[in-house]
Structure formats: C-alpha cells, structure tokens
Simulated scan of single mutants.
Amino acid sequence: MRALTVTPGQPSAAELVELDEPSPEEGSVLVRTVAVGVCGTDREIMSGEYGEAPPGEDRLVIGHESLGRVVEAPEGSGLSAGDLVVAVVREPDPEPCTSCAVGEQDMCRNGRYTEHGIKGVHGFARDSYRAEPDRLVAVPASLGLRGVLVEPASVLAKAWEHIEHIGRRGRWEPRTVLVTGAGPVGLLAALMGAQRGLEVHVADLVTDGPKPELVRRLGGTYHGGPVEQVDLAADVVLECTGVPQVVAHVLGGTAPGAVVCLAGVSSPGRVDIDLGSLNREWVLDNDVVFGSVNANRRHYEAAVEALVQADPAWLDGMVTRVVPLEDFAEAVEDREGDIKSVLLLDTPPD
C-alpha cells in the first residue's frame, strides 16, 4: 500500500513509499483511508523540525487528521463496513499515568504517550490502517469529506469544555469571545463560540480572501491587522497563533473574570512584558490563563456534534485545496488564501 513517510529530523525527506498491509495485530477494525488533512504540525515534521518514528524504524508515516471508511469490523464493535470514522490521535502511555488510565491521555502526566503521525506510531497518510473500536469515532455520512475536520475540531471542543469548566467557578455570563488567528483552529474556535451564542471577534493579519467572509458568515466581526488594534475587553480569549507577541498582548486588557485559553504552540522567542502589571490585573480581576492541547474521545464526539450543527457550505469554505496523495508536495505549499489543504487517498463520500 502507499504511504507518505518522512525521516524524522531530516528536512525535505518526505517520500511516498510502498508498505505492507497493516497486520491484524494492530487492531480488529480495518479502515481504508479516505483523506487526511494537512496542518502546521505536518509541515514542521516534513521540514525536519521534529517527529519520532516507531521503535526500531527509520521512517514515520505522517498524517493525524484522518477520515476513513470501515472495511471490516468485528461483530459487536458498533461499527460496520462502509461507516465513516476518524481515528483518535493520541495513545496512552504503556504504564498509564492517572490521566491515561481513565481515557484522558490528552492530559498525560508523564509524557510517555504516543501520537499517530507525530510521535512513536505511524499516522494515517497510507491507504489503510487497523485500530481497535475504542480508538475510532463514527462520523455521520451527512458530513462526507467535511469529516476530515473532526480532529482539529476536537482540539477546540476540549478547549471550550475547559473554558466552561473554569467559568463555572462562580456566576459567569460571558458575552464576547476574541479569537486570534483565522487559520483552521481559529475558525473552528469561532464557530463553536458562535454556536454558544457569544459575540465573536476574530483577529488576523490577513485583510482579504476567504477568512473575513467566513467570520462574517458566522455573524462575527473580523479584525484585519495587528491584534493590538482590537479595542475589546473580551470575556473569553482563544489564542490560536502561538506568536509570542500576540500571546503577550492577549494576556492583558480582558474583562474581569476573563478566561484566556492558549491553544497555539509557540516557537522559542523573547518579548518584553510587564509581568507585574499583568499579575496585578489577573489577581484583582480573578482572571485565568491556561494552555490546552490535543483531545480525548469525548472531545472527538463533541467535535462531530459541532460540525453536524454547522452550515455545510461554511465548512466547505474552510477546505480550500484537495489534492491526490501523489501530489502531497502541492498540499504543503503555502499559498495566499489557504485555510485547509486535504490529501485525498480514496473516493470521497457523496
């Protein structure tokens, strides 16, 4: 079968290779991969910045944003041939910590987890794979190819779950949410904010193209330009860029009792910051700043629900490029107006 692989740590080492069909030992459910989404993590792995091959192997099959079609599944698994599924990315550590032991490997406490297509276990940019039923989340046929958005949406479903959990520490009636970054993660954050009835504001440097229109179609306000120009004391902030200067800015100037979720992973970098003033504001206003990454099964299920409730045409607008697996180099190109690129491996759902 075909598989898109890299040699971790080596730039420009992505290569389409032939691998053996997956062994039944890998799982009782056989899945034919329909599509995989391409994100910044994939681009960084392909450029050699990080990534870890499975033990004893030199190459890693990439791709963690998956959509597949069940080929065969055991009786009683809850899955049948033809079902669309998304695979959970993170696997618990071999000697589960307290979080992994209860299915919350997204909150792993010892760092010994593995992640498909990222860390220590092959991803889904291959014609087929196997998994156990509890590692697969069913996707309604009505979502079709849009189901490839479930994995990134799961990350935001978790973020919103935690935001709301923190908010319940006291009487909390949020009205406004500021999202920084209008990439796939930021737009999905905005979608879930709109679904919660909040006044949505999205800030991004891009001033034209599909991003402003997608935000407006949510009923939100798009701020094109530096986030410093946004005059808003938001009740909720979802920082989705990881840009240190943006992170530093959104930590202050929020509404009293605000919750700030940092969902973008930063590269090392220093910025000048008045920590004393920030600390004073956080303490006196009862603000909370927390980080969030990855997702567990319940967040995937919540993501499916959010996408099913969304306007299908709006979701279609997020997928700006679909190319066959053989043209993977085209999918990772950075083009103006891009939001989400998708690699197609099999016939897409109707």
Rank of each mutant, 00 (worst) to 15 (best):
V17I: 15
L187F: 09
A255Y: 13
E132I: 08
V85G: 02
N296L: 06
V88H: 04
A125D: 00
A255R: 13
T98S: 15
R168S: 14
V148C: 07
R109P: 00
A203K: 05
V86C: 15
E281R: 15
L275V: 14
E91H: 14
G219M: 08
V206F: 09
V250W: 12
E305A: 15
R2K: 15
G253T: 06
V236S: 02
A248L: 09
L191M: 10
S77A: 14
P349Y: 11
C97Q: 05
Y113H: 13
W282E: 00
V6S: 02
V308G: 02
W160Q: 05
S267G: 14
V283T: 13
T180A: 12
L251P: 03
V139E: 00
V283W: 13
E26I: 09
R321W: 03
L251E: 00
N279Q: 13
G291I: 07
P96E: 02
V260T: 14
E132F: 14
R175A: 11
G317P: 01
V85K: 08
E336N: 05
D208S: 12
S47D: 10
S266C: 14
P226E: 01
R32I: 01
L79F: 14
D287P: 00
I118F: 15
V70L: 04
G147D: 00
V6Q: 01
G183T: 02
H64P: 07
G103V: 11
D93F: 13
L67H: 12
P244M: 08
L275P: 01
P74L: 14
R59A: 11
S80V: 12
D327M: 07
E91Q: 14
I45W: 04
V202P: 03
